[in-house]
Computed example of a mutant assay.
Amino acid sequence: MLKKQLLTQIELKRTELIEIAMKHGFSSSSAIICSQELDVLLNKYNEMILKNEFRSFRSTKEQWNI
């Protein structure tokens, strides 16, 4: 999944969560499920960012023979 697609999904899920929480409350089962789905998307995004940073670090390390 591309970074841009993932960010779009995150924003859509965040909007959905806000709407659900405003209608049913933050502790409703539907808000909790939506929040967990948002957590999964955020974790995927963080994993993607960390992998890219590691690749960049590794490339720089190899470039400087460290």
Rank of each mutant, 00 (worst) to 15 (best):
E19P: 00
T8Y: 12
F57E: 06
I49K: 11
K61I: 10
I10W: 07
S59H: 11
V40C: 02
K51H: 09
W64E: 09
K51I: 06
Q9S: 09
N43W: 03
A21T: 10
Q5R: 08
R55E: 13
E47K: 14
S56F: 00
D39V: 06
M48G: 06
K61D: 02
L12N: 14
S29C: 02
L17Y: 04
C34L: 03
L2Y: 11
K23M: 07
Q5T: 15
S29L: 09
F54T: 07
I32V: 14
I66P: 01
L42M: 13
L50H: 12
K3H: 09
K3C: 04
N52F: 02
E53G: 01
L41Q: 03
K4V: 10
L42C: 07
I66Y: 09
L17A: 06
N52P: 00
L42Q: 09
K23E: 13
E53Q: 14
L42Y: 01
L12H: 13
R14K: 15
A21F: 05
K51D: 12
Q5P: 00
R55W: 03
L2V: 01
Q36H: 10
S27T: 14
R14D: 08
N65P: 00
N65C: 06
E11A: 13
S35G: 12
F57S: 12
S59V: 02
T8I: 12
S35R: 14
H24D: 15
K44T: 07
E37I: 05
W64T: 07
L41Y: 04
E37Q: 12
Q36N: 11
K51T: 09
Y45D: 01
T60K: 15
L6E: 03
F54E: 08
L12V: 06
N52S: 10
K51M: 07
F26P: 05
E19K: 11
I49H: 02
A21H: 07
D39S: 05
N46R: 15
Q9P: 01
T8E: 15
L2K: 15
L38C: 07
Y45Q: 04
R14T: 13
L42P: 04
L7A: 08
M48D: 10
Q36D: 10
C34I: 04
M1I: 10
H24I: 00
L12P: 01
L17K: 06
V40Y: 05
F54Y: 14
M22F: 03
R58Y: 15
K23I: 08
F26Y: 10
E16H: 13
T8R: 15
L6H: 05
K13E: 11
L2F: 10
R14V: 00
N43A: 14
R14I: 04
L7E: 15
K13R: 15
E37P: 00
M1Q: 12
N52G: 06
S59E: 14
D39H: 06
I49N: 03
S29D: 11
K61S: 12
S30T: 12
A31I: 02
E47M: 12
E16T: 09
I32G: 05
L50D: 08
R58L: 11
S27F: 09
E37Y: 00
H24K: 15
T15W: 01
I66K: 13
S28D: 11
Q9R: 14
R58T: 10
L7D: 11
L38T: 01
Q9N: 15
K44A: 06
D39T: 06
S27G: 04
F57T: 07
S35W: 01
L17M: 07
S28V: 06
T60E: 14
W64R: 13
Q63S: 10
E37T: 02
A31K: 05
